[in-house]
Design a protein around this nucleic acid. Structure first.
Lengths: 183, 183
DNA sequence: TTCGCCATGTAATAGGTTACATGATTGC
DNA sequence: GCAATCATGTAACCTATTACATGGCGAA
């Protein structure tokens, strides 16, 4: 009834894989949680990082399996009931995550905003702004509420800094669409 | 030698497809150009829209073929030399583009920035900022140069507005990373 | 004239999205 | 005790990226 009987698969390296941002999200969250099922990961994503980098829940099942197959995760499966799979980092997984975090990147991220694409190709600015403005205002309000909940740290953490960045960009979006809405 | 002899394939609808942002970029650029080969589209992308929504060049070959197969484009192929393919919008393609442009979207775009992801998972802010700051400063300078080249229109066009938005977000990135670099 | 780079294109792979499917839980 | 909803998982499809491949042109 409690899933104590499990099948354990330890760090066998069946194949080489390429680690994607999705991979590092899984590794990073498992590092925070110690161990988790894909479903728990899904909830962790929703709780924080999903705000600026969301994932399909299906992705968490395939990605954990893929990482386990390549030796980055240990996998443990319940023999009863749901046969849930529980994952945790291997040494290899920890090393991969640490190395990635420790390596700064100069990668540039494009906006890739659908509304902007329409605007580019001649969409009516006011109509677009009327749709976009409330969305970004709501998102901004949500972020600011999140920020007010967190502790007023002297030393901001990673998630906190990411949130600050999100707020800055949302303010920019609001400014931009408001100008078009009013213009 | 000049490819006058061509094979023409007219708007046959072989299959239904789903139109993606990539599809609309192709449709939109063909609308601007009248007609173009995939390679010419590649150059058009590089000249403007690629700044905030870039494409792999291979994508332009597969996407044009896909759109032609679904009746959104006419395809004309040289019989000589390079056997280049020349595409133009069909009525159906024009209608699809117009409908898309005319429909505002409330879709929200995530940041999905790799550096921010690393920051979230504990990367050293100063080291990251040292990599990111020059990249964003350079991009901002490029955008501002682009803006200064364009005419000082009374009525800004779509591309111009998209550029303004890009400038706003780059300023935000510069502000953000500068603070971490100095902090 | 040949080396190297840009032009132009195709093929293979893989990551991500969508759709589907069943087990548990809660409320009525 | 039934319906509805949430939890949990798998399968299929398809777009996008990567890798590969050849042709033409300019420079040395």
């Amino acid at each position: 009834m409690d899933g104590c009987v499990r099948t354990v698969t330890r760090g066998a390296v069946a194949e080489e894989i390429r680690l994607t941002p999705t991979s590092y999200i899984v590794l990073g969250l498992l590092d925070l949680a110690g161990e988790a099922t894909p479903y728990e990961l899904k909830r962790m994503v929703a709780a924080g990082i999903g705000n600026f980098w969301s994932l399909q829940h299906a992705q968490l099942y395939t990605e954990t399996a893929r990482l386990a197959g390549a030796g980055y995760l240990d996998e443990e499966q319940e023999r009863s009931g749901r046969r849930r799979k529980l994952y945790r980092l291997t040494k290899r997984g920890q090393a991969a995550l640490r190395g990635w975090v420790a390596t700064p990147t100069d990668q540039f991220t494009e906006l890739r905003d659908l509304a902007l694409l329409k605007l580019f190709f001649g969409a009516e600015p006011k109509a677009l702004a009327a749709e976009q403005l409330p969305v970004h205002e709501a998102k901004l309000a949500e972020y600011e509420r999140l920020r007010s909940q967190g502790p007023a740290d002297a030393a901001p953490t990673g998630p906190r800094l990411a949130l600050e960045s999100g707020i800055g960009h949302e303010r920019e979006w609001v400014r931009f669409w408001r100008r078009l809405a009013d213009g």
